[in-house]
Amino acid sequence: MTEGIAPATYTKLRACLRCKLIKSEDQWLKDGCENCEQLEIKNDSERMIDCTTSRFEGIISMINPAQSWVGRWNRLSNKIPGCYALDVQGVLPEDVPEEDEEKD
Score class of each variant (00 low, 15 high):
45 S>Q: 15
45 S>H: 10
46 E>H: 11
46 E>F: 01
46 E>L: 06
47 R>F: 02
47 R>N: 12
48 M>R: 00
48 M>G: 00
49 I>F: 12
49 I>M: 13
49 I>E: 15
50 D>G: 00
51 C>F: 05
51 C>D: 10
51 C>K: 02
51 C>P: 04
52 T>Q: 06
53 T>E: 07
53 T>A: 09
54 S>I: 00
55 R>H: 04
55 R>Q: 09
56 F>L: 07
56 F>A: 01
56 F>S: 03
57 E>T: 02
57 E>G: 00
58 G>K: 15
58 G>E: 14
58 G>L: 15
58 G>H: 14
59 I>T: 00
59 I>C: 06
59 I>Y: 02
60 I>S: 02
60 I>Y: 03
62 M>N: 05
62 M>Q: 00
62 M>F: 04
63 I>G: 05
64 N>M: 12
64 N>K: 10
64 N>H: 13
65 P>L: 04
65 P>H: 04
66 A>W: 10
66 A>Y: 12
66 A>C: 14
67 Q>I: 02
67 Q>D: 08
67 Q>N: 15
67 Q>A: 08
67 Q>Y: 03
68 S>D: 15
68 S>I: 13
68 S>E: 10
68 S>R: 07
68 S>K: 08
69 W>H: 12
69 W>F: 12
69 W>Q: 07
70 V>N: 08
70 V>D: 13
71 G>E: 00
71 G>Y: 00
72 R>N: 02
73 W>P: 04
73 W>M: 10
73 W>Y: 10
73 W>I: 11
74 N>G: 05
74 N>E: 12
74 N>K: 09
74 N>H: 09
74 N>S: 02
75 R>L: 10
76 L>M: 06
76 L>A: 01
76 L>H: 00
77 S>E: 10
78 N>R: 08
78 N>W: 01
78 N>P: 03
79 K>V: 01
79 K>D: 02
79 K>W: 03
79 K>P: 02
79 K>I: 04
80 I>V: 15
80 I>L: 09
81 P>Y: 00
83 C>M: 13
83 C>K: 06
83 C>F: 01
84 Y>V: 01
85 A>K: 06
85 A>F: 07
85 A>I: 13
86 L>P: 04
86 L>G: 08
86 L>D: 09
87 D>Q: 13
87 D>E: 15
87 D>K: 13
88 V>T: 11
89 Q>N: 12
89 Q>D: 10
90 G>E: 01
90 G>L: 05
90 G>W: 01
90 G>R: 11
90 G>Q: 11
91 V>M: 07
91 V>K: 15
91 V>W: 07
92 L>F: 13
92 L>T: 11
93 P>G: 09
93 P>T: 08
93 P>C: 10
93 P>H: 10
94 E>A: 14
94 E>Y: 07
95 D>C: 08
95 D>G: 10
95 D>V: 04
95 D>Q: 11
95 D>R: 10
